[in-house]
């Protein structure tokens, strides 16, 4: 009885969090699921079937491509940057400055980021103009910045710092003793990396890559600010379905698209969770 009362008392501070979770995660998710399988109170799979349309499949494909490419590029470059940070002295200016910058830039998305790229390499961007006048090179080209290719570049901007934030603890968890033990047993530097450090870091690296994938897959504001023509990716397609004045009654389809996104992100996050669980046992 006393133990139960104690547990209740300990759980009290978490109540606001759970209320928040219910209002802003559970209810919206249930609403999305319900909306994707019902029309005016009647349950059917019409909108789920519509996910098989070529436009929806195309958007899904491009979203996956965009997320995969930016996740891989972000993961590789972020891992290299993380390694440079770990290799520097714990109190070095480089380490403090880079980690601080990464913490900020990982959250630097949306309109501000889109504008920064437009102002730099957009049609009248500073760099575009400079190249145009100094060497005749047309950086703007056919407007690639406003396509999926452009999104890949812009997304990478916040994917790399996010990778640093997520992957740095794993790299810092590599113990000096492991390297020294491997070396004293006869390992070369390459053997240490391929047989000890690599396998130890692989789950953390893959997990972080999945997180980057989910981060990119769910990003909306940057793409919305940059792409005004067409719906190349799922979040923009949802926007159009919800706000279109040309084709009414598409809100239900938006729910189905959102449901599709939830499933993809859920699968990715389960994979991330499993990998992080494994690596956290090794690298704590």
């Amino acid at each position: 009885m006393t133990a139960t009362r104690g547990s209740v008392r300990n759980a009290l501070p978490l109540v606001p969090f759970f209320v928040f979770l219910v209002i802003f995660l559970i209810i919206p998710t249930l609403t999305v699921i319900n909306g994707s399988v019902s029309t005016n109170g009647t349950y059917n799979l019409d909108k789920i079937r519509a996910l098989g349309d070529s436009a929806a499949l195309g958007a899904l494909g491009k979203s996956v491509l965009l997320s995969a490419v930016t996740a891989v590029i972000g993961a590789v470059l972020g891992a290299v940057l993380s390694w440079l940070i770990v290799s520097s002295a714990p109190t070095s200016v480089f380490r403090r400055v880079v980690t601080s910058i990464c913490s900020v830039l990982a959250q630097f998305g949306g309109v501000a980021l889109a504008f920064a790229f437009i102002a730099t390499i957009g049609y009248s961007g500073v760099l575009t103009n400079w190249f145009r006048t100094s060497s005749g090179i047309d950086l703007y080209g056919t407007g690639w910045l406003y396509s999926v290719t452009g999104l890949m570049l812009v997304y990478t901007y916040f994917q790399i710092p996010l990778m640093v934030i997520v992957f740095l603890p794993a790299l810092e968890g590599l113990r000096v003793q492991w390297r020294e033990a491997a070396v004293s047993l006869g390992a070369t530097s390459r053997q240490y990396w391929t047989q000890v450090a690599g396998p130890l870091l692989a789950p953390a690296f893959l997990g972080a890559t999945l997180l980057l994938f989910a981060n990119s897959f769910a990003a909306y504001a940057t793409a919305a600010a940059l792409v005004s023509q067409g719906n190349p990716i799922l979040p923009l397609m949802i926007r159009t379905a919800m706000t279109s004045e040309v084709v009414l009654g598409q809100a239900g389809f938006a729910y189905a698209l959102a449901f599709e996104m939830i499933i993809v992100v859920a699968i990715i996050m389960v994979g991330y969770g499993l990998l992080v669980r494994r690596t956290s046992r090794w690298l704590r």
Partner: peptide, 15 residues
């Protein structure tokens, strides 16, 4: 890695 020595550390050195 070419000295042919076995070493036991203070702790936490197992892979």
């Amino acid at each position: 890695n070419k000295r042919d020595m076995g070493m036991v550390f203070q702790a936490y050195s197992l892979f």
